[in-house]
Design a protein around this nucleic acid. Sequence first.
DNA 1: CCGACAGTTTGCGATAGCGCAAAACGGGAC
DNA 2: GTCCCGTTTTGCGCTATCGCAAACTGTCGG
Lengths: 236, 236
Amino acid sequence: MAKVDTSLVAHLPLFAGMTPEALDEILREARSARYPKNSAIFEQGADAQSFFLLLHGHVRAAKTTPTGEQIVVRYVAPGETFGLAMAIGAARYPATAIAVDDSVVLIWPTSAWPRLVERFPSLAANTLQTVGTRLQESHTRILEMSTQQVEQRVAHALLRLAKQSGKKLDRGIEIDFPISRQDIAQMTGTTLHTVSRILSGWESQGLVESGRQRIILRDPHGIVVLAERSAASGSA
Amino acid sequence: MAKVDTSLVAHLPLFAGMTPEALDEILREARSARYPKNSAIFEQGADAQSFFLLLHGHVRAAKTTPTGEQIVVRYVAPGETFGLAMAIGAARYPATAIAVDDSVVLIWPTSAWPRLVERFPSLAANTLQTVGTRLQESHTRILEMSTQQVEQRVAHALLRLAKQSGKKLDRGIEIDFPISRQDIAQMTGTTLHTVSRILSGWESQGLVESGRQRIILRDPHGIVVLAERSAASGSA
DNA sequence: CCGACAGTTTGCGATAGCGCAAAACGGGAC
DNA sequence: GTCCCGTTTTGCGCTATCGCAAACTGTCGG
């Protein structure tokens, strides 16, 4: 098993407050793997045999209803963990994880978790922290879905993506992984048609530049304004 | 400070896997308090000075937007913790907690958390578990809001409340704390008007019996059917 | 260089649910 | 017993957004 370079991950919140030796010991239990673009890392409902830390690339976590509708739970950025079903006491993955770009991950067997936590209690504390943060974000999302209209929700979603995974260009901020209208719709509780209409509108106002699975915020501030107005007039 | 009877709380998931001595030591750090119906336990945005365990009563956690709209994050049932801002690394409460019935809580100072976690690591593990479960529930709620219509969402919400805090009556299952149309609207992302219309409809079909801040599910199974149909005809 | 296809755009009804307004109701306080 | 106030009910028009359908376009494979 290839040795993982500790220096690459030592600064991650997950490992906060750990000695190099502890970190080393934890990493020794992991293996790494590469998932090509558009491949599934795990499927909703499957046995949660592993948990993951994303090193490179981007991963989409999506939840599917019995009737086949999907929502995007979140996009995982490098340095974040995912597939932590066991931490919450679930035997099966509650969502599907797909690599949206060629991605590299560290993989631990779920079975190692109890031992690791016992040996390194701060692992549980750190994980609690991240899960708690996600819970808050979740609540914020519910609040938005309950109180804002679609255009504002899309604006917020894009701003969050830009903050999380934005690449600074001179023309604006580009979301640096492939994302479709459909994906955005599934993040905001609407349809790809509506998202398309909204982006078209923004494009003609010079707020964004968007193409096939690619979005550049040309005027982030303008979008912030859109996101924050509570209930105003329509678009041009 | 009144001594808390350990036997009352020993079985709670929060304290799973703890020795009586550990439990005792943890409880020694808590004080208890009583909040009358409709009083605030803490306000959104306030310094998170304490965290809580509900012993008796019911508490509503609600989040407010800058513009004043509210959503109900959850209803806390006896035995559950709330106000765990520190566990997720937040200095301020992200929501407001209101006692919807006369309630009794245990209160720990937030400052005690790091010490307790260090001394009793399973506290972190157990909390991680509950926070993780809440995260999942949150995702389920987002999924519902994205894919279902209002009537189904209300059906699901009531079924959940009934499961969590339902009192079995011969006429059906009563949600055993005061809850208004407005509250249900804020749980499901709709308006009190729409909730009222839906409940009126159900009442005339004999599915529920509802009054002022009081709801009885007379035909839980009928409501399950409503909740599960993916997209069908209207009501009578 | 060309075809095929996935992703996108756009038009055009249809409608679920909102928002406002007003009336009805029920329970408690005195 | 009566008054008052918070809650609930209901009517009615409005519109944001969906849903379907069709046309369009950029990309990739060959």
